[in-house]
Design a binder for these strands. Structure first.
Lengths: 341, 341
DNA sequence: CTTGACCCGAGGTACGTACCTCAACTATCG
DNA sequence: CGATAGTTGAGGTACGTACCTCGGGTCAAG
């Protein structure tokens, strides 16, 4: 009737508690036949380890770190806020957190930070950084030391990370393209702005955006991406120049990072209300833009979910437990003025 | 350094463990002054009860019930599936679940079901049912017996329920209105269909929809709501009639429940691809509609989140623990073909 | 047959909390 | 002053699991 315990397993398998314990915790000194007997009993009774009692007994502490880009980006600020909020609330059990900020555009700094992580003092790390060969090797190294590694926001697809928690950026771009095509009424041009087309996120978003607009919305002509190279004033200038000189521009797709200067340039041009503006990530800037009817839609990922999911996955992986994939999938949120959270 | 335990509290307050226990669990036999001393120590050390150890010690079982509408609605089927999935996965700790289906349009049946719930055998209940005076009284009664009551999907605003888990339906209607206004290119009419305008959800959605279209989109003329009174064939007939006889209809807003027959009528009319169709809830029907470009957007609530949130809230309330509101807020999802989960 | 390596059981303590008993103390009242 | 009720402490067991020790068992090689 009740949930079976190790005692029930021992009785069912006809062995002692110590043996059950040895089997369940992969300790040596048990014959293969006996191991099977225990596993059979586990299966027959449907035993599942009570993780909380186990953690209590072994005084388990989960020690995780978040490796995040430093700098004044509104998105990372929002993300860090979400991490702090989750950490402060009591939903985390036995978790100790460290936040590490690095200039993420510098692969060597990322590598140094990764190498400074000690497997003796840490169980897992969540990384948000662009992938580079150096980073890939560093991930491999800390994984071989026994750390659990998950990528957040930006995937590290060629690195041996255990899991990726974030959105599908091609789908994000496709969603933006679909919205743009449905919302721009007349034929015209669409401006795409980003900080850098070197980032795989931007590349994927652009790919998705182009695919949908190309296939389904021939009335739109999508211009080549405008890059600002992390320079806000450059972003402001380029956007201002394009929007004022090309009246045929009817839509702007801001692929994230650099929303604020792009928006301010659009605002100054006086044309922002006539444009369909689609941006990424919900930040103070984009929220304000939505409320002022300057931005039509924001494609976002829920940073609260992102952080909680990262924690759950880190825990599950450090315990060797399965992940409930349906719960961990980060949805692509489409946010309009009326469904602002 | 480590998390303080009851032992630390006892030492800090200069009392015994038994006294700390009496205070923390509101047991009698402690002088007011001593109670304060213990509470002071708790505050000074920042003690928080280890819920898992406590549940272990007291052999806690959470016994919850879900009271849901019976019948073949795709949304409730989806919801029930989500409940089963959450229940089957191991994320629930010490929770026993019962699902009760009632013909929810019959207040007396709902009341009978509520009265059959025994506070001795149950800790809490999540209810999805329309509010009526009878239901309100029944909720008050089972609450007075000590049960925790939360409303899910549809609020019971005049009942003494402890919490509501679901979306803001006025905002949902406003979001639909905004999407409709942005996506319908020319001047024309918008058809609004629902099963019944008696339901407060429908009323609120319509309210929000009208507010936004009225204020911001004068090119749209929103027709009076068409009601099908839970009769699929009636729904099919009315929709077919309106759409074929009124070529000036450019958009259709299906407020939920009855999506399937409405869609099939639109499909048969041959006009569906030229219309902007906005529907509620992600079900097999609406998913198919999105994929076929028949539906432009779906306003949905994530049923997985809904169910997990209901469980967390029920647990927290039965333990008298605080709720992390930011985690429990159910977002209004805007789902397009490209961001289908 | 002995030796030693391997296997297994019995029984213990611990984690943080709940809940129990019983003895002893304190304050108050008549 | 003693009786009485109200407070408090000491110490225990239990929850389900981890981890430890130690004694005794089996079995194959020498």
């Amino acid at each position: 009737m009740n949930k079976p315990t190790v005692h029930d397993i021992a009785r069912e398998a006809g062995v002692s508690l110590a043996t059950v314990d040895r089997v369940l915790n992969d300790r040596p000194g048990v014959r293969a036949r006996t191991i099977d007997r225990v596993h059979d009993a586990v299966k027959r009774l449907g035993y599942v380890r009570d993780t909380y009692a186990a953690n209590l007994a072994r005084q388990r502490q989960y020690r995780f770190a978040f490796l995040l880009p430093e700098g004044p980006s509104q998105f990372t600020t929002t993300l860090k806020g979400a991490i702090r909020e989750v950490y402060a609330s009591q939903i985390l059990d036995r978790v100790q957190l460290r936040m590490i900020s690095v200039p993420s555009h510098d692969p060597h700094a990322v590598v140094r930070a990764l190498h400074s992580l000690n497997a003796d003092k840490l169980d897992g790390v969540a990384i948000m950084a662009p992938e580079s060969p150096q980073v890939r090797d560093a991930v491999a190294r800390i994984k071989s030391e026994g750390l659990v590694v998950v990528a957040v926001v930006s995937d590290l697809p060629n690195s041996p990370r255990d899991h990726f928690i974030g959105i599908n950026n091609i789908a994000a771009g496709r969603t933006a393209g679909l919205l743009m095509g449905r919302m721009v009424r007349d034929s015209g041009e669409v401006l795409v702005v980003t900080n850098s087309m070197m980032s795989r996120d931007s590349i994927e978003r652009r790919l998705g955006f182009d695919a949908v607009t190309g296939e389904e919305f021939p009335h739109l002509k999508v211009l080549p991406s405008v890059e600002a190279y992390d320079d806000p004033s450059r972003m402001r200038e380029i956007v201002a120049e394009v929007v004022t000189s090309r009246p045929q521009v009817l839509g702007v797709y801001s692929m994230g990072f650099g929303n604020t200067p792009a928006l301010s340039a659009l605002r100054d041009s006086g044309r922002i209300r006539d444009l369909v503006v689609i941006a990424h990530e919900l930040t103070p800037s984009t929220r304000e833009g939505l409320l002022k009817n300057e931005i039509s839609a924001v494609i976002a990922q829920n940073v609260g979910h992102l952080v909680r999911s990262a924690m759950r996955v880190l825990r599950a992986l450090s315990d060797g437990q399965p992940i409930v994939l349906s719960q961990e999938k980060i949805r692509l949120d489409v946010i309009l003025r009326e469904n602002l959270p």
